[in-house]
Structures are given as C-alpha cells and as structure tokens.
Nucleic acid binder design. Structure first.
Lengths: 135, 135
DNA sequence: CTGAATCCGGTCCGATACTG
DNA sequence: CAGTATCGGACCGGATTCAG
C-alpha cells in the first residue's frame, strides 16, 4: 500500500495548504459538501447519472423521497449548476432533469467515495456494534 | 475527456447494480455519508490526517467548533472505527486522537472529492448568483 | 485539560391538502 | 403531470455551566 500512503500524504499536504489559516466558513469543501451532504442530493445525482429523467420518473426511482423534498433538492441542485431543468409544452406538461457538465464531473470523485463506503461498510458496522456492546 | 466519461459510465453502472431494488435505508453509501455529511466529521478527519492530535490541539486547529460538537463528533468517529482514542495517565491528563487504518483509507477518496470541490467552487458560485439574479 | 449536562433556537424534512 | 402551501415533529448544533 505504498502508493496509497503516498497519495494520502499528497492530499494531507494539499488540504493543509488549502485550509491554511482561513476561517472554516470560506472553505470551499465545506461549502460544497454541506450541499451534497443533505439527505437526497447525492442520491439524485447518481440517479440522474443514468440519463435524463422526468419528475415522476425520479420519484419512482427514489420511492421514499417526498414530493416536497424532491422539488426542493432538484431546485437546489439546479441552483448550484449541477442539474438542468427543461420544460416541454406538451399536454400534459412534462419536465425533464439532466446533469449538466458540472454535475457529470461529480460522478467520478463521488464514485470513489461510494466505492470506499461499500468496501468499508462491513468494518464500520463491526466497529459500531463493538463500540455499543462495550458501552 | 474520453477517459473521464468512461470512468463515469462505470460508476453509473456500478451504482445501479449496488442500489438495485433495495430500499434507500440499507444503501451503504447513504449510511456512511450521512455520518460524514455532518458539520464537522470531514474537517476533523482531514485535520487528523496530519497526525495524532490532542483534544485542545484539535480545538485550536478548528477554532469555530464548540466543545460539545468536538466531543460528540470525535465520539461518533470513534464509534465508526475511523478514529482511535488513547488516554495518557499523566497529570494533567491528556487524550490523543489518531486515525485508524480505516480512517486513513478515507483520505484518498475524500481527497478526490475535495479536489472536485476546489475545482468547481467558482462555477458553483457563478451558477448560484446567476440563478438568484434571475429569481 | 478533557470532558459531561442542560437549555434552547434554527433548520430539516415528512404528511397532507390544494393548484394549473 | 408537476408542482405549491402549510403544519408540526425531530434533530442539529451553539452557549453556558459544572465536574474529574
């Protein structure tokens, strides 16, 4: 795992340089991940990664999201330039959502984190139960 | 950007396979990122990536975190097996926190996301102001 | 120095009902 | 089909105070 450690060191150094002496508020990472860290954003990004979807298609793909949160999260993603919204003047009207180039560029780095989460899920669960049984 | 698109396609496929027909609740990604998505976890992980730190060292490194949230976040990270806690019976007592192997393995994938956030910050801000001025 | 305990306001988010 | 409006609970997180 020599390569992994070297990469990690690079990122540590890069992080220290980026975070610097500045306050936490203007940390770009915090700003961005506060948005992606909410309950539904990532899930919708990954769902839209499969191609454009209409409103109710998304609703069916993510059954346990409420209409309210689906609307709200999509609007926030659109506001951040990650998702584009296109209205068709058909009857009945339909609205299509798709990832922008910026949104598309998120898939790969997000994919790395997803891989990590999948690979680490077992150890995290084990650590949790171990911690809870002690307490 | 041919390579990027191919990587993205792989992750889309992998995501679709992993999410499957299962409910959102047992999605490992959601489980893990709900934890990392809180206000301070990532920040502490990246701070601890620089090496072991004591409680007040962390407090100084992240000035705008409250004692309560520092304690709470560290305990949660410890519970998830990302951080190890070691108490020294000195006088006055000191407590040292360090990343576990599991926590260390998070640095690289998190680094990719941080890079994306840094690279995309400008475009996201532009999209936000554009969106807000229209509305 | 390293926490725990408590109070409290703000925000997130689900449920429900209604609109064009 | 694609939303909007409103209510209300749950939870996050800050400030303060106390303890080993």
């Amino acid at each position: 795992m020599r390569q992994g450690e070297e990469l990690a060191a690079i990122y540590v150094e890069r992080w220290n340089a980026a975070s610097g002496q500045g306050k936490t508020e203007d940390c770009p990472v915090r700003n961005v991940l506060d948005r992606l860290g909410d309950k539904w954003s990532m899930l919708l990004v990954m769902t839209l990664a499969g191609g454009p979807r209409r409103f109710n298609q998304l609703h069916r793909a993510v059954p346990d999201i409420s209409q309210k949160m689906l609307t709200q999260t999509l609007r926030d993603l659109q506001r951040d330039g990650l998702v584009a919204r296109q209205v068709f003047d058909t009857k009945p009207p339909s609205v299509e959502y798709r990832l922008t180039a910026l949104g598309h560029s998120l898939i790969v780095p997000l994919g790395y984190l997803i891989d990590w989460a999948n690979d680490s899920k077992g150890r995290i669960d084990a650590a949790r139960t171990a911690f809870d049984t002690v307490a």
